[in-house]
Design a binder for these strands. Sequence first.
DNA 1: GTGCGATGTATCGGTCCGATACATCGTGGC
DNA 2: GCCACGATGTATCGGACCGATACATCGCAC
Lengths: 212, 212
Amino acid sequence: MLEFAILGLLQESPMHGYELRKELTAKLGAIRAAISYGSLYPTLRRLQAAGWITEAAETPATAEVVPALTSRRGRVVYKITADGKERFAQLIAQAGPETYDDTGFGVHFAFFARTDQATRLRILEGRRRKIEERREGLRDVLGRAAERLDAYTLELQRHGLDACEREVRWLEELIANERSGRAPTVPDTGTAGGRREDNSPPPPGETRNERP
Amino acid sequence: MLEFAILGLLQESPMHGYELRKELTAKLGAIRAAISYGSLYPTLRRLQAAGWITEAAETPATAEVVPALTSRRGRVVYKITADGKERFAQLIAQAGPETYDDTGFGVHFAFFARTDQATRLRILEGRRRKIEERREGLRDVLGRAAERLDAYTLELQRHGLDACEREVRWLEELIANERSGRAPTVPDTGTAGGRREDNSPPPPGETRNERP
DNA sequence: GTGCGATGTATCGGTCCGATACATCGTGGC
DNA sequence: GCCACGATGTATCGGACCGATACATCGCAC
């Protein structure tokens, strides 16, 4: 999961660890608190060993021209490689059952802008299926096994059931919208240079305040 | 977390691993899919090493009287010890910040029937605090950083924000109810024997269909 | 001038998951 | 009669991720 998220983020722009964590937290804030350095750094090393990312010199030209002024030391900037992009595409294409659990789905959804419509649809439907199953499980417990459980446990199940029903409706909406044709796939920034000084208006359509 | 859940469940009745997993899944179905044997068995061994649970012979008397009839073999039944109960009480009393994340809160909430009112209140308020913080974070992103993110990521944040607001309201209700005095604490079954043939009506008040 | 919060990199122990292996029991179809 | 299959049941292994911790620098406020 982390691997996927890192490759996805680095496709937008090269970053160092700290920055990566902040962006990750912003992008995934809805689904997980904040990823730990205890996972981040080892994963970065793993990705580097696999050749999917490389250490990029910290803007070496400018660093020599203006050495003292922005003399940040010790920062290690990572950028994605061609193999890394391939790997990312492959991870999207695979998108199996593990993609339907809470975290897996959230992370994949966060990168839907880089995912083709067919895969988006597949993931959304897989997720819906999974949530429907969870919903049925909760209904069963609330129906058949209710008298075996205490009031608090039941209340927890009710709240969970409510969340399931809500998410299914949300997914239905997204699926319907997806089928009706809207498809704001991002072309591709970064890798070649850029370094996020550019704030090119984040791609095309966007449709703010109109649920995608 | 697993440690806590196991000690809590074994307080209701002795169980073997498989049963434990099923009960755990039923009780925690709203918050986590199903716990893995890869965590369950090692944890059981850890708890046993610490002296908080013991292997109980599979109803040894009955097994010798009616040997062939219910000749289940290889089943290892665990029961909680006095130290284990103490440990459980201690884990409830500690109930620190780690109790306020999604899983931690869910598990503790599932055992609220065995938790004193003061601690229940403390946990509910801690959880509310945490969710409020997450909510503010999401509002910030949706407000200030919105134009940096694509439509899908924004939709994810909106959905997350909605879930936060909903949970805060839910917690408010629970807190108000808690303060107003309802307190269905479970007295204590199991440990002494019983083996779940008894279906003593699950404690007192219950108040079904009336949110606790 | 100095202390403190943000920035920044990194490791270690521990919890938990997913895949896998393997054995038994009861039941329904052939 | 038998046998396949799904439920019951115990168990391990590698890997992902977290939380605590350590340590160093930067910029600003007091």
